[in-house]
Design a protein around this nucleic acid. Structure first.
Lengths: 202, 202
DNA sequence: TTAAAAAATGAATATTGATTCAATTTATGT
DNA sequence: ACATAAATTGAATCAATATTCATTTTTTAA
């Protein structure tokens, strides 16, 4: 005899999976990140340690799904914010604004997507740097277009895209890890101007 | 009866301590950093695991000494390169050149001083980010001076110093972790220009 | 309401890596 | 060369976590 899950059970299980993912986000975003153990995550999600393994193959699988989810959330916002613009500079600025808004609004997301020094977890590191490289790649596409149109001077766009993302990341992380700047407007403007000027916008 | 170390023994012990420090550098700079275990470090240094603890109180002490050493090496080069200049822009440019030369010349040093995702080691992370913050602090001093002299526009110098260091770090790491750029001159120039223009140099 | 199936539990096990320590080797001073 | 101190060794111990699994609880379908 084979039993079938009822709708109610399916929902409960989905909700549990979500609870685990949220617990993982919360804990990974916390100050030291140090105790992102399965035990701690399970506890936060309100389940027993062993139950975790009914929902995810192992810790790696959890991290994989979680990173993909939050990365997608970010990309969706970026896409939406860029949509109205055709000019390369406007698109770049929209991207930065989308990132600033998203990251400052959901700091846990910034902490996880941008912060260095995660676990000893090699897997995490690989996936993490894939994401940063992705962001750099997207930026480079914009820059190549701008250079093509001679709106920015001749340059190694791989380098400037990397610098662009690096500057951005370091500043956001600074804001996340310390206190936000007193004069938010000046601070945001400084960051955006730094990157735009850095490219050599005329 | 108390015995006293001969000169020969003192030298041998100093050389051993150095060997341990060098082994640690080598291993920490390696691709995955994953096996920077005491066992591996000791083996590389040509001693038994337990011997390590005759030279360092624990792993943290080793990392502390090692980081201090390589950070000092970097600062010494920077100081020397800046010495000839009084103009703020020249000093900044000299700093960047010193860093590029040092990091590209001794990649292990760059890997350790700039690379993210070290160990699960909380201690390492703290010391590591202290160094980055230090570099940002020094940069900010230069920028405040430049703004004071109205050589760069009004800006949040904490933010631009952070962006400056962040851009720099990401690019150097990119070069370290992937291949160096084809056109080295263009690449270097792009990085330096990005940062100088970013500040709003007239 | 009940028996079989599925899910959940958490204590036990496995793994990895730091640290210790009894035993051994080497150095010192006579 | 000898007796004692100091240094070295590496296997054993400890600690922290991921993962498993025998047992218990909940769900399903008659």
């Amino acid at each position: 005899m084979v039993y079938h899950k009822t709708e109610k059970i399916i929902e409960k299980q989905q909700s549990r999976k979500r609870k685990i993912l949220n617990a993982a986000r919360e804990i990974l975003a916390e100050k030291d990140m140090g105790n992102a153990s399965i035990k701690a995550i399970a506890k936060r999600a309100g389940i027993a340690t062993g139950t975790f393994y009914l929902y995810f193959k192992d810790k790696e699988a959890l991290i994989d799904v979680m990173l993909k989810e939050i990365y997608k959330e970010l990309l969706d916002v970026i896409k939406k914010e860029r949509a109205p613009f055709t000019n390369g500079f406007d698109k770049l600025e929209a991207t930065m604004k989308a990132c600033i808004d998203t990251f400052m609004g959901k700091k846990h997301l910034a902490k996880i997507l941008l912060d260095l020094s995660p676990q000893n977890n090699t897997v995490f590191n690989t996936k993490f740097s894939d994401i940063i490289n992705d962001l750099i790649r997207f930026t480079k596409i914009d820059l190549d277009e701008l250079m093509e149109q001679q709106l920015i001077p001749e340059q190694d766009t791989q380098v400037s895209a990397t610098a662009f993302v690096g500057a951005f990341r370091e500043v956001i992380l600074f804001w996340i890890n310390s206190d936000e700047p007193l004069d938010i407007d000046l601070a945001y403007k400084t960051l955006i101007n730094f990157n735009m000027r850095g490219l050599g916008k005329n």
